[in-house]
Write a protein that binds this DNA or RNA. Structure first.
Lengths: 337, 337
DNA sequence: CTGAAAGCGCTAACAG
DNA sequence: CTGTTAGCGCTTTCAG
């Protein structure tokens, strides 16, 4: 910048303003400045600018697992909504650990990110992290998992309804003994579990405790959990799985046991990950519109970051919908035979 | 920092040094400083530090597609290797566009990242971007795709060998008419294609041009490309697919056509993405050790960033290996029946 | 419309 | 071992 100023015989300040299209610079000067800047291959130093303006154009993004395509998709939505505004994302993986998450958030704060998007691994009831963020007045949006009792921006689905919808679908398909491979004790897992229970109660069906087995959320674990279910008598004839990766493992376990999906056991997942259509048996699932979740969260965050004062927390629920594929299609099957 | 200094009646410099465990500070002073820092909830401002030291502890990571689990896994390796050293990653998605990639790299440079890891979308022969990086002396490591004729750090697989291995496996399984759903004209795609051609030549098998169809690299495209192959006569009896997502689509297309995988058409992919075991027909594939690619690249980058002077470019080839699953298992099948 | 002064929060280099 | 001086590269503020 000093160079440009010297070359043109103007002050550094003029250059600074001209480059930012500040409007109290004559059109002519601005052109000249921008021209020499280009010739000299000048690039503004965002670190210095960030220090001066307290505005880094950096957004922190903390997710429990990047390998899970649900989050990969969310992330894509976030990136797409952030990029045109000049923001970039620092993405960190909390490995589903509340502790790592806290550490990472604090590192992001030291980095002076302008805002945060978090799919939190905090167990229910732990609000400290979010209090810290509120006190420090860093805009943040929680996604996918809304810790109970937290007043904060949130974008995600209604997990209880997701659980009800999936379970209800199994009921409609004629299942009588519906099990659930539940997720960990995070809001998403808890919500879906209680949706499952409520729907069964509504339909007057039993929900024996041994029909609920924890399946975690990564790819292998659904397989193990399903094998546990397969040892039970009577066998369940329908299984609602916490998410698609779990469901994928579950399908594998059922088939390996020599049973048919969906005729012996119908299966529904949640998340509609991109490969769910390509599995052994294509997977019925609840689409959560993950891309839109990311986009919406990013837009909300931008509003907060660009607002003058503090903003009031907003909760946005992204609609979900059922996608029926082979893994739950019993009636049609029955008809066609 | 000023506060801490005032509280303790020492200079700001002492505080600065004490907090960084600089070794010319008395043990006692250091303790006192760190204690009050903790009490005051002090957090160093990395932006300011970055400006002063010209060292941001930020690494830029540019990949063509985050949704592709191959890159998600690479990324995990990178993050895992970078984190203990205090680096964080700014991750950008180039959407497989050379132009977007250049823009993103330049934004990262403005941000003064300490180094870059790039799975480049540059078409072969375009070296400008890398020249710029070299001239500006920013350490960078290319991964997965080595543009021809570039002298730069590289970590990835040997694509020609991958192509040969996969094709050779199909030959061993007794396939006579082997087709290839090739990738885009990037090094990975080109290398695998030429490995395929070479192996066929070595085995004295024909490689008719219509047996090579472009399948891109995302999930849907393998399906379409395979349908094209299915219109040919004679039908191929083995298909080597550019990568697993393409292969997944291909399997779907073959099954929908009423044919059997692997008996009518055997299929091999590449990448060993985490769900390849869960597909309609579990997928034989070449494992590329994606996690290790990420880790290795990150370690190499760290060495470059922490070296005093310029370092000489290194190429590290991560070994791959064949994983045989159902989609190519013809001989065993033949035996067992 | 242009520029001079002061400072963002921290640290390198050197002097005490 | 501790402190002083002088920036890092840019911007805000306010006076010309």
């Amino acid at each position: 910048m000093v160079d440009i100023a010297r070359d043109l015989g103007v002050s550094v300040m003029t250059v600074s303003k001209a480059l930012r299209n500040h409007n109290d610079i004559s059109h002519e000067t601005r052109e000249r400045v921008q021209k020499t800047a280009r010739e000299l291959g000048y690039q503004p130093n965002w670190v210095a600018r960030g220090l001066a303006t307290r505005h880094t154009y950096l957004v922190g993004l903390v997710v429990p697992d990047l390998m899970h395509s649900f989050f990969a998709e969310v992330l894509k939505g976030v990136a797409q909504a952030l990029e045109p505004a000049g923001y970039q994302a620092v993405i960190l993986n909390s490995e589903e650990s509340a502790e790592i998450e806290e550490y990472q958030v604090s590192a992001l704060l030291a980095r002076k990110v302008d805002g945060l998007i978090i799919a939190s691994a905090q167990r229910s009831g732990r609000a400290r992290l979010f209090r810290v963020l509120r006190d420090r007045k860093v805009p943040f949006v929680l996604i996918d998992r809304l810790p109970a009792g937290i007043r904060a921006n949130y974008v995600g689905g209604k997990d209880e309804e997701i659980g009800e919808l999936a379970t209800g679908h199994l009921v409609e398909q004629g299942c009588q003994r519906i099990a659930h491979l539940c997720g960990p004790a995070i809001p998403t897992g808890i919500g879906r579990l209680s949706g499952y229970r409520r729907k069964l109660a509504d339909c007057g069906l039993a929900a024996p405790p041994e029909y609920v087995v924890e399946g975690q959320s990564s790819d292998g674990t659904g397989f193990e959990a399903m094998r546990e279910l397969l040892r039970l008598r009577p066998l369940p004839d329908g299984v609602f799985c916490y998410n698609d990766p779990v469901a994928a493992g579950a399908i594998k376990a059922v088939l390996e046991a020599g049973l048919s999906v969906p005729n012996d056991i119908a299966i529904v997942g949640a998340g509609n990950v991109h490969y769910s259509d390509l599995l052994r048996v294509s997977l019925s699932t609840i689409d959560q519109n993950s891309f839109l979740i990311g986009q919406t969260a990013a837009h909300l965050l931008r509003e907060c970051m660009e607002a003058k004062g503090p903003t009031r927390p907003t909760r946005t629920f992204i609609p979900h919908h059922l996608i029926v594929r082979e893994s739950s299609l019993r009636i049609a099957k029955a008809c066609s035979t």
